[in-house]
Design a protein around this nucleic acid. Structure first.
Lengths: 222, 222
DNA sequence: CCAAAAGTGTTTGTGCTACACCCATGT
DNA sequence: ACATGGGTGTAGCACAAACACTTTTGG
């Protein structure tokens, strides 16, 4: 068998979409219709069109599966093992996206058998190398939580400090000290109170905050 | 003009190769023979073969241009702007490599007009988006220097603490305190003395060290 | 009145920073 | 002898970590 050189490859993007729901970090997965992974769960993705950049392809794909736009989206890693796709040579540029819990309105597209959120600790068996992709994304997410302000991309515009802390605790998988946590965010001026309060729960109403600066920043937090 | 969809793209890898020479951080560049960037300087790279993974392509390319193997090599970022290559749709997966000063034996391949080391602060105009690639690589290198042990990939097997410190100072672009620096590396047990000394210079001979653990580790250093 | 989360300061310890002098060698 | 980098310790300070009780609401 002759060695194949300079063969064309197909470029795809796959996007690991995270959100917080029911006190858990969730990933959006789709169930595939077509062979060779019929009825397998996978991360949503698709081929890159000839006239769009990689980031645009990821954005389009994200919009098509979730209906959301303007969310945090970052390139993660490019997977190019020769045999990663039984269909042929497909190189996949993976992205990860963070969407606020509020924005969830899953489009029931007919491109997929179904679409569902899965808690990251209870993932099904996945097609391709998607298990690896997700674990890579999780690693990156955990790391960036500690030295950037991306956590804000997972929360609604207004949130309580308790919700912010839960966000960290859920993703990092450990308890944090309430007083130190609040001290940190307040002293760094990352959040400012809106004056409103969250009422309606069976306990003392919490002050609502919004982030002082919506832009991505690199700041040592934990 | 019709929109082109699902067109095949070509995958290339480009590798930013760093080394320390003459008290400077240097990048290896090649001068291109072919149009449309004839006589332009660029980062070495090439198309990915049909039967090799992305990492393998980068390794092969690195070996072909420098003759070195088994050096630090890490995927950096994937560049996919539609018009980044006037030749057609080429998506480039960039890597960065660190090679010890000792290993330099530039092969004068005839695939390129010439091959040369450039100090990172004196780069020529580059082809494609290679200027962006290098600045991205530099950012990553600086960041990783502070929280991993990759610096060791730039040094010979045996080195003095002075050389290690210079490595940090050159790349980070700032002076570090000698006592604090040594304290750090010794207390973390990252280096162990070999018992040998570096002689032959017009000053007190320095103890030679080697790294205690050659494997990549994530450790807060600075 | 009870349950549940909100809100609030102080102390202790660790680790980073800053800093200056003598030593061993080659020329 | 002199120039050059090698090698060493300490004190102050800032920040991180640990820690418990009162308040406000809804049920």
């Amino acid at each position: 068998m002759e060695t194949v050189k300079y063969k064309y490859a197909v470029i795809a993007t796959d996007t690991i979409i995270f959100t917080l729901r029911e006190q858990e970090l969730k990933v959006l997965l789709i169930k595939m219709k077509k062979a060779p992974f019929q009825n397998c769960w996978a991360v949503p993705g698709g081929l890159v069109h000839g006239d769009e950049s990689l980031g645009d392809a990821a954005k389009r794909n994200l919009y098509e599966t979730t209906g959301v736009k303007d969310v945090y989206l970052e390139q993660l890693y490019t997977f190019g093992r020769v045999d990663r796709d039984p269909f042929g040579r497909v190189v996949s540029v993976s992205y990860f996206a963070l969407i606020p819990s509020a924005d969830i309105e899953l489009k029931t597209t007919d491109a997929y058998e179904s679409v569902r959120w899965f808690g990251v600790s209870r993932l099904p068996v996945l097609a391709y190398d998607h298990t690896e992709m997700i674990s890579y994304a999780l690693e990156r997410l955990k790391a960036k939580l500690e030295y950037t302000n991306i956590a804000f991309s997972l929360l609604a515009d207004e949130f309580t400090l308790g919700e912010l802390q839960q966000c960290y605790e859920i993703i990092l998988g450990r308890k944090l000290d309430k007083r130190n946590f609040r001290k940190k965010f307040l002293s760094l001026n990352l959040v400012t109170p809106t004056g409103r309060r969250r009422t309606g729960q069976a306990h003392r109403p919490a002050m609502l905050y919004h982030f002082s600066n919506r832009n991505y920043q690199v700041i040592q937090i934990l």
